[in-house]
Amino acid sequence: MLTRRRALLAGAVSLGAAGVAAACTPGTGNRAATAPPPAAGARAARRPLKPSEYRLRPLTGYGPPRTAPGGTPVRREPLLRVSGRGRTMVLTFDDGPDPRYTPHILDTLARYEVRAMFFVCGEMASYNRDLVSRMADEGHVVGNHTWSHPLLTRLRRSRIRSEMERTSDVVEKACGDRPEWFRAPYGAWNRAAFQLGAELGMEPLAWTVDTLDWTEPGTRTIVGRVEDGAAPGVVVLSHDAGGDRSQSVRALRSYLPELLDSGYHVTVPRRQYV
């Protein structure tokens, strides 16, 4: 039993660290993609914005997800790729809201009339409910990123449920609706997280492009990682809390208009199950 638990923990953490996730689009089955990020702090290569050579390759060995009570499937892998017409991308921001940085990110998104996803931590949301309300009022998707940002693979099932439920309760009080999406801290998923998320009516969403902005590599590097990774269906991971996120704020102001000028449609995903 001990060996099995250690193997499960190692597999879940390895999965999150590598950013490997499965995607489900109508008529295409599950797909996955991996894109090793540049070393933190390294200057990203710059080239004209266009769909990169990043490709999504089919996964084998995964059948259709089981459906939990309420209609949400219990997945074995988090969703990664999003479906949409043309060059559709999704921007996501984790760990907030933080009154020092989140308002600036919301201002930039509003300026360009773009919607994004915010995976909030319940503890942060409880102190900044006005920002959670603003997110929802401006058309953004508010997702669940647990209460205190723990490593789920080290928690008992009851603790995972508490982390998720408390956060969903705070979000509902702030904007009237419970989250329909969740993201595991550190990208460390396990079976309990998938099952409990589905029971609470939430789909798991990972990411395709990791900006590694939490390492504070410099605004130019963050911009380069987003532009170099841009491709149809991509989900970009950034942060609006958890440290000094001034570089993330400045980077968004730079790469967002560039993406839009290059023909990308930045939006939020739609639930495929109700």
Rank of each mutant, 00 (worst) to 15 (best):
L9P: 03
R47D: 07
R220L: 05
R154M: 13
R134A: 08
R115P: 04
S133V: 02
E203G: 09
P65I: 13
A192G: 09
M164N: 07
H265A: 12
V209I: 13
G19T: 04
G16A: 14
S133L: 10
S162H: 14
W214R: 01
K50R: 15
R115C: 06
A45R: 13
G233V: 02
G176A: 06
G86P: 04
M164C: 07
Y62S: 06
R81D: 05
G29F: 07
A198I: 02
R129L: 09
G224E: 10
R166V: 00
R66L: 14
V274G: 14
V114N: 06
G229K: 05
E199W: 11
R5C: 07
C121Q: 05
W189K: 03
V74F: 08
I222H: 00
P26N: 09
L196F: 06
T211D: 11
G218L: 08
T211Q: 09
R270S: 13
R270G: 12
M1A: 13
R183C: 03
G187F: 05
Y264V: 01
R57S: 14
E113T: 10
A39L: 12
D95N: 04
E203V: 15
S126Q: 09
A174K: 00
L260P: 03
P69W: 08
R253N: 15
E77F: 15
G242A: 02
Y101P: 01
E227V: 12
G71M: 10
A125P: 01
E258T: 14
V235P: 02
F119R: 01
A184L: 04
V266E: 14
R46T: 13
Y264F: 05
R81H: 10
S83A: 10
R178N: 02
T60C: 14
H265D: 10
V274M: 15
G176M: 01
A18I: 12
E227W: 13
P58W: 14
G63Y: 11
R43I: 05
P232D: 13
A206Q: 10
E180A: 05
C175N: 06
E77P: 09
T108P: 05
L152V: 03
D210V: 00
R129P: 04
P48D: 12
V236I: 13
L252E: 06
A192V: 07
R75Y: 13
Q272H: 14
L256C: 08
R253P: 10
V20I: 15
H149I: 02
L152H: 02
E180R: 06
I222K: 00
W189P: 00
P69T: 13
R43N: 07
G61L: 05
R75Q: 12
P78Q: 03
V132E: 04
R6T: 09
D244P: 02
G243R: 11
G263H: 12
G27T: 08
R85D: 15
V249R: 01
V82D: 01
P179W: 04
T215F: 04
H145F: 02
T88C: 06
G61S: 10
V226S: 05
T267S: 08
D244C: 08
D95Q: 04
P38T: 01
R253D: 15
R46F: 07
C175D: 12
Y101R: 03
Y255W: 15
A230K: 00
R47W: 06
G197W: 01
T28H: 15
V274S: 15
R111V: 00
R178T: 05
V13G: 08
T28G: 14
R47L: 09
G263T: 05
L15F: 09
P217L: 00
Y255S: 02
Y264R: 02
W189N: 00
V90W: 09
